[in-house]
Design a protein around this nucleic acid. Structure first.
Lengths: 188, 188
DNA sequence: GTCTATATTTGGATAGAC
DNA sequence: GTCTATCCAAATATAGAC
C-alpha cells in the first residue's frame, strides 16, 4: 500500500471543495481533516503554515486550473471556437454549477481581508482574457471591455443564484447564452 | 438619557451590516458587541437565542425592507415608473454597491445550511415581483420570467464583483442598464 | 439593561511517540 | 507520515451582582 493515503494535489482538491462550499471562516481544520481523511496533526505536517497555507495552496491550484481556461481564450484560432472551448471548460470547472466559485466564496466569507489583492487580480485576469478574444473578433476595445466585464458579472451571479436556489438552470442558461451575448452584432 | 443606548431596530441594522460584510461564521458575538456598543452579555439579554436569533432578526428586518422594494414593483401605475422607482430603492438599499447582499453572504458563508428555505424563497420573491411588472408592461409571461431571473442574476453578480474588485462601477452600471434590459423590445 | 465573571466548547496549532 | 495528547486562544453562552 502507498505511503500516503492521498496525494497532496488530491488533498488540496478536497480542501478546495470545503472552502467553496462553506467559505473561509466556516471551514475548520477538523472539517478539512474529515474531508481528506488525514487527521488534524497530519494536516499540519503537510501544511506547516496551517489553515492559511492550506487556503494559499488552494488558491494556487485553482489559479492553475483557471489559467488553463484562460489559455483557451488566448490561444490562436477562431474567436468563436476559442470562446466555446472555454465555456466547455468552465462548465467542467464548476461541475455544471454544482461547485461554487472560490473567488465568490472568499469575497463573502471573511477571506476577503486576507486575499484582497489576489481576488481583485483574478477578476481582472478573466476580464482581460475575454476582452482579448473579443478584440480578435474585431470588436472595438471599449465594447469588448464592457462585454467581458458583463460576462464575469453574469458568471458570478449565476453561480450565487444557482447555489441559493439549488437550481442549476441559472448556471446552465448563462453558459449557453454567453457566447452569443459576447459576440453579437448589436451596439452594447 | 434614554434607558438604552441604542434601539433594538438600530442594533439589528448594525448587526446586519456585520453579517453582510463578513458572512455568518466570521461574525462573532464579540464583533457584534463592538459594532453595536452593547457588550456581549447585554446582547444575550436582548437576543436570548444568541447568534442564531440575531441572524433571524436580521433576516426579518432585511426581509421587511426588501418587501418595501418589491411593493414598489407591485404597486399600480406605469411599469417603467415602477421599475425606475424600485431601482432607486435598490441603490439606496445596497448603499450604491457598498453594502453586500445578505442573501449572497449567507449563501457562501456557512449560513446556507440553516436558512436554505428562506434563501431560496427570497430569490423567488424577487423574480416573481419583477415578472409581474413586466407582464403588466405587456411582455409575455415566459419572456418576463426569463428576464426577471436574468435581472436577479445580474444584481447578485454585480454585487460580488463590485466587492471583490472594490470598484462600484459594476453595480452602478448594472443598475443603470437594468430598466432598459428588462423592457427592451427585442425577443429575449 | 448593563456589567463582571465564568462555564463550556470549539478551533488553531504543537510536541513527541511510533 | 500518522497518531495521541495537549496547549492556548477565541467563541458561544450563562449566572448573578448592580
Amino acid at each position: 500500500m502507498p505511503r500516503t493515503k492521498i496525494s497532496r494535489e488530491d488533498a488540496i482538491e478536497r480542501i478546495a471543495e470545503e472552502f467553496r462550499r462553506h467559505g473561509y471562516a466556516a471551514t475548520s481544520v477538523s472539517r478539512i481533516a474529515e474531508a481528506t481523511g488525514l487527521g488534524r496533526a497530519s494536516l499540519y505536517h503537510h501544511f506547516p503554515g496551517g489553515k492559511e497555507e492550506m487556503v494559499r495552496e488552494v488558491f494556487r491550484k485553482v489559479g492553475e486550473e483557471v489559467g488553463q481556461i484562460l489559455g483557451l481564450l488566448r490561444a490562436p484560432g477562431d474567436p468563436r471556437e476559442r470562446i466555446l472551448a472555454s465555456m466547455h471548460a468552465v462548465d467542467r470547472f464548476y461541475g455544471g454549477g454544482a461547485k461554487n466559485c472560490l473567488l465568490g466564496s472568499m469575497v463573502l466569507s471573511g477571506g476577503l481581508d486576507l486575499f484582497a489583492d489576489e481576488l481583485g487580480g483574478a477578476f481582472g485576469a478573466w476580464v482581460d482574457a475575454l476582452r482579448g478574444v473579443l478584440e480578435d473578433a474585431g470588436i472595438p476595445s471599449k465594447v469588448a471591455q464592457r462585454r467581458a466585464e458583463d460576462a464575469v458579472v453574469r458568471l458570478q451571479g449565476a453561480l450565487v443564484v444557482t447555489r441559493g436556489t439549488r437550481d442549476p438552470k441559472f448556471f446552465q442558461r448563462m453558459l449557453k447564452e454567453l457566447p452569443g451575448n459576447l459576440l453579437e452584432e448589436g451596439g452594447a
